[in-house]
Structures are given as C-alpha cells and as structure tokens.
Computed example of a mutant assay.
Amino acid sequence: MSSKNKSYGKEQAEAFAENCRYLGLKLLAEEYQQMINRANESSLGYYDFINNIVQTEAAAKKQRRIETLIKNSRLPQPLKMLADFDFDFQPSLDRRLIMDLATLGFIERNESILFTSKANGVGKSHIARSLALLACQHDYKTYYTTCSDLINDLNAGVYEKTLAKRMRKYTSPDLLVIDEMGHDRLELQVVKEAHLLFKIIDQRYNDNKSLIFTTNVEEPDWAEFLGDPITTSAILDRIFHHSVIVRIDGPSYRMYQSEQLQKKYTSKKQEAK
C-alpha cells in the first residue's frame, strides 16, 4: 500500500473514531476494528453486525450510568453487597423480608424502610447500604448520608443562606439513606436541629419518595435525642406511616469478628510455644 493510501486510511479511521465519540459511541470508537474482525471471522450478516454493535454500546452506556449513580450516591467504600451479609448470624432477621425488599418494589410503591435495633453492629447499615447499591444498579438516583452529616450540612446552610440548595441534595433522589442515627449522640448534644431533619422527611413524604433510615435510638427516646418533642412527633408520624419496620435483635457482628481475631492470635501464640 502506498504512503498516500496509508495516510488516507489513517485519516478515515481518525474521522470515524471522532464521529463515534461525537455520537457518544465511546466503545465503538475504541474497539471498532476488533468488532469488524470478529464479524468477519463469524461471517455475520449486516443486521447482526449492527445489532451487536448497538447492544454492546447500550450495555457499556448502562454500565457507565450505574458507575456514575454509585459515585454520586456517596455510598461509603468498600461497597456493601447483600450476598456478603451473614443471615445465619442474625437468625431473628427475616431473610425472606430482606430478599423481598431487595427487589426494590418498595421504591415503586413509594414506601420507606426503618431499620432499628438496641445494639450497634447488628447489620442495619450493611443491609441499608446494600439496598442503596442495588437501587443504583437499577437506575434509581440514590443518596447516602449519616444523620449527623445531614443535620450539620443543613445547619451550615442556614448560616450561609444556602439551605434551599443543600436541601435539594436530599429531596431530589429517588431513594435517600439516612444512616446511623444514634452513633452521634455527643456530636448532636450541642446542635439539636430536629426541625432541619423534619424539613427533609416532610418534603420526601409529600413527594412520595422512598427513604431508608437506620437507628439504634428507641422510639420514646427520639425526642430527647433530637431536642424537640413536637417536631420529633411529626417526624415519627411521617416515617412510620409508609415504612416497613425491620427490627434486628441480635449480637454484634463486629464484636464477633473481634473475638474471632483474638482467638486466631491466641491460637498462634500457643502453637509457637
């Protein structure tokens, strides 16, 4: 092939790749030659060849959207998978209920979930974050926050006159996860802004949007924790109205893991003697 033809072929390839990127066909821009080679090897017809390209691009675009939804959800790393949850360790937890919630039908029905327990480390956050991850994977806009981070963020918005803008971060997603109410008792002793939490709960309630809430604060103690009995009553009323209540009464998995770790090293010490 002459240098002139090579140059022309290179220009064509570059123009083709540029047009693909312009149309958002990123995978085709990078892998079109491999796709052509595979089509030649399998003697694909024109329709099958184009259909394969479209399906591949659609799958790649969907995966990019999922990755964006997960990133924007602010879910903590490492991500929690429901398959990694040890249901055998919490026999009081109804596994069938959790699997039903994992179908995400509660979002379509505009329902919420309240995970509650007396103890820490029983798996409330793990399941909540796993359901949030599933929501992202099924194209639901999702946002994760702890209760203290939400209240502190909105409180800053009051002083900076950016409250409306900050609120949209919590009211616009299809699913909002408010985690760990009760882990932040000392932090919230000074700033008890129940009315700010109410603003979010009330807006989502009126918009029929789903919420996942986790807490180890018993219902009678919410008013003391949030510092406003009247507002707290309104919050409870809205949370409980359309919520599936999942109570987990069991041992701490973190404590169990700690005990197993100590046993492991104790055993190694005895073997070394």
Results as ranks from 00 to 15, higher is better:
residue 213 F to L: 05
residue 203 Q to R: 11
residue 152 N to T: 08
residue 172 S to Y: 02
residue 46 Y to C: 10
residue 162 T to P: 12
residue 110 N to D: 11
residue 185 R to L: 06
residue 193 E to G: 10
residue 131 L to I: 05
residue 15 A to W: 08
residue 146 T to F: 01
residue 10 K to W: 13
residue 168 R to Y: 07
residue 202 D to M: 08
residue 19 N to L: 15
residue 238 R to W: 02
residue 56 T to R: 08
residue 260 Q to P: 08
residue 24 G to K: 02
residue 74 R to Y: 00
residue 1 M to S: 08
residue 153 D to T: 15
residue 214 T to C: 03
residue 166 R to C: 04
residue 87 F to C: 03
residue 66 I to F: 08
residue 95 R to E: 07
residue 153 D to R: 13
residue 74 R to G: 00
residue 262 Q to W: 14
residue 11 E to W: 15
residue 239 I to M: 07
residue 82 L to I: 10
residue 251 P to A: 10
residue 20 C to A: 07
residue 246 V to L: 01
residue 161 K to N: 13
residue 28 L to A: 12
residue 16 F to Y: 06
residue 183 H to T: 15
residue 261 L to I: 06
residue 220 P to I: 02
residue 13 A to C: 15
residue 9 G to L: 14
residue 89 F to K: 00
residue 106 F to T: 05
residue 128 A to D: 05
residue 59 A to D: 00
residue 242 H to Q: 14
residue 86 D to M: 11
residue 76 P to I: 12
residue 117 S to Q: 06
residue 27 L to H: 10
residue 48 D to R: 14
residue 194 A to Q: 13
residue 94 D to N: 03
residue 114 L to V: 10
residue 80 K to S: 04
residue 133 L to T: 00
residue 271 E to W: 14
residue 248 I to C: 05
residue 12 Q to A: 13
residue 120 N to E: 05
residue 232 T to S: 04
residue 82 L to P: 02
residue 264 K to Q: 01
residue 69 L to G: 06
residue 141 K to L: 09
residue 27 L to A: 09
residue 248 I to A: 04
residue 105 G to C: 15
residue 173 P to H: 12
residue 30 E to S: 11
residue 37 N to H: 14
residue 88 D to I: 15
residue 251 P to Q: 15
residue 211 L to K: 07
residue 247 R to A: 11
residue 198 F to R: 15
residue 169 K to H: 09
residue 135 A to C: 01
residue 3 S to K: 06
residue 99 M to I: 13
residue 140 Y to C: 13
residue 228 D to C: 10
residue 220 P to Q: 09
residue 64 R to C: 08
residue 141 K to F: 09
residue 224 E to V: 09
residue 123 G to R: 03
residue 255 M to S: 07
residue 89 F to E: 03
residue 182 G to Y: 03
residue 179 D to G: 08
residue 199 K to A: 09
residue 225 F to N: 09
residue 170 Y to N: 00
residue 163 L to R: 10
residue 246 V to P: 14
residue 226 L to D: 02
residue 52 N to G: 09
residue 204 R to P: 00
residue 76 P to E: 14
residue 163 L to M: 08
residue 192 K to A: 03
residue 127 I to H: 03
residue 257 Q to H: 14
residue 232 T to I: 07
residue 271 E to C: 11
residue 130 S to G: 00
residue 229 P to F: 00
residue 214 T to N: 06
residue 29 A to L: 09
residue 183 H to C: 15
residue 160 E to P: 08
residue 137 Q to A: 04
residue 103 T to Y: 00
residue 108 E to I: 04
residue 68 T to S: 04
residue 2 S to K: 15
residue 70 I to C: 05
residue 141 K to M: 11
residue 245 I to F: 01
residue 226 L to F: 04
residue 26 K to A: 14
residue 267 S to H: 14
residue 196 L to S: 07
residue 132 A to E: 12
residue 69 L to A: 14
residue 61 K to I: 11
residue 239 I to K: 15
residue 178 I to P: 00
residue 65 R to Q: 13
residue 244 V to N: 02
residue 111 E to Q: 05
residue 254 R to C: 13
residue 138 H to Y: 01
residue 54 V to R: 12
residue 158 V to F: 04
residue 245 I to N: 00
residue 224 E to M: 06
residue 95 R to Y: 09
residue 165 K to R: 09
residue 71 K to V: 07
